[in-house]
Design a protein around this nucleic acid. Structure first.
Lengths: 232, 232
DNA sequence: GATGATTTGTACGTATGTATA
DNA sequence: ATATACATACGTACAAATCAT
């Protein structure tokens, strides 16, 4: 417990003390939910008026978002919501697959019995949700399932990178469960991951997770292709 | 025709350096070089005076550093140069090994002939530097060697994460080449990595790179232990 | 291509919260 | 415990750069 007050374990809600933090949260949400779509310019003054604060906290929030990769800033130009090229998006999914696989591998070796039980519970909860075809709830519990595996890796920094990448990809995974039958298949893939982790088989966990993530990418690709991309 | 007046070929559009950016660079350097040591508080006013700017760009720079993980900020408290716990440092090295290994694996499969030649050149340059035992130059060319492998992965996002992690660890790798004979051993390890990449053997490249990075961590550990850590 | 309008970048003053006597 | 000192958070004014006409 020698926590000499340096590295924090707070990936969990903080008291929204400062305005800049509040603005950052709201803007991040708007980006993740697609309200602020990729390519859009963010006007500092407009946001400041909209949120009832001055430009100062808005500027600080935008700077944070830029560091997270959610927006792109260039000197004296408005920040733009990041719109990765198809190649960059492919790169990000490739890395996401490796990060999540790494989490799964470590989890297979390091998860405590209690953590394993929790993971099983979450997975079992998903069964009925799949039956009901409740996309909303599935999305939420899916986050829990993956999050439990992240934590099971027992590597804080790996969790940090994985969550950051997940957030950055969120605008491009939003539609993933729209595909018919995707819920059931996702659940089956989770089952394979869970089994490998419970057996402590790191290699199998890696293979199952990699497959799971890359399927998500393919699902996204198909959705995008069917959309007749809007011009830049 | 009219190429904006300049006869120069526009290599890289030099981003007009804003003050906040300049301050960020300087502070990041001071942290990487240990001038601002882990645990130290950063006083906005002091930095502003020292760099001859107002507090505004300093605040923005500090916020960037916080997002990079180089400093820790809490509302209404001074930013502190990050001092990771030993566990967190271990986590970061573990992830660093995986990121660099991943770069090496992809590089083994994807590097172009020209990129392979460049990597060989860099490696050959290092030979004489090892002979001279020139730690300073070795450090610089070592960066080039690793950087060439990052780029060889042909995955921009992976490069981004790897560089970010490298920067974050830099305060804790500064002393790595102080250990006697470390240069020669580092060079030998590079040789194993290079051979694997040139042969296109991804698995061997992973193994060689992982070993190389974890050796760096161990070297650091020994140095720290021998230092009778100074109090907080 | 020049000029005015708009938006970002910086300085500085004040408010607010934290630490300390 | 209250008050005081001090550093950060925020708002506002102005300068500088970009863009639009």
């Amino acid at each position: 417990m020698s926590n000499s007050g340096s590295t924090e374990i707070d990936a969990i809600p903080r008291p929204k003390t400062t305005r800049a933090e509040g603005v950052r949260q709201r803007l991040a949400d708007e980006i993740a939910e697609g309200l602020l779509a990729p390519g859009m310019a963010i006007d500092e003054t407009e946001v400041a008026l909209r949120f009832g604060v001055s430009r100062t906290p808005v500027r600080e929030a935008i700077r944070d978002l830029a560091a997270m990769g959610l927006v792109l800033t260039r000197p004296h130009r408005s920040a733009l919501v990041t719109r990765p090229s198809p190649e960059h998006l492919r790169d990000m999914f490739e890395v996401m697959a490796e990060l999540e696989s790494s989490c799964a591998a470590h989890a297979a070796k390091r998860m405590t019995p209690s953590e394993r039980n929790d993971l099983v519970s979450v997975h079992e909860d998903m069964a009925s949700i799949v039956q009901d075809n409740d996309t909303q709830r599935y999305r939420a519990v899916n986050e829990q399932f993956h999050g439990a595996i992240y934590l099971g890796s027992h590597n804080e920094y790996l969790v940090e990178l994985t969550l950051a990448t997940r957030k950055r990809l969120s605008p491009f995974r939003r539609a993933q469960f729209q595909s018919t039958g995707r819920l059931a298949r996702s659940y089956a893939e989770h089952d394979a991951i869970l089994t490998a982790i419970l057996r402590g088989e790191a290699d199998a966990a890696v293979a199952a997770m990699r497959n799971h993530i890359l399927v998500v990418e393919n699902t996204y690709d198909r959705l995008v292709e069917s959309r007749h991309d809007q011009p830049k």
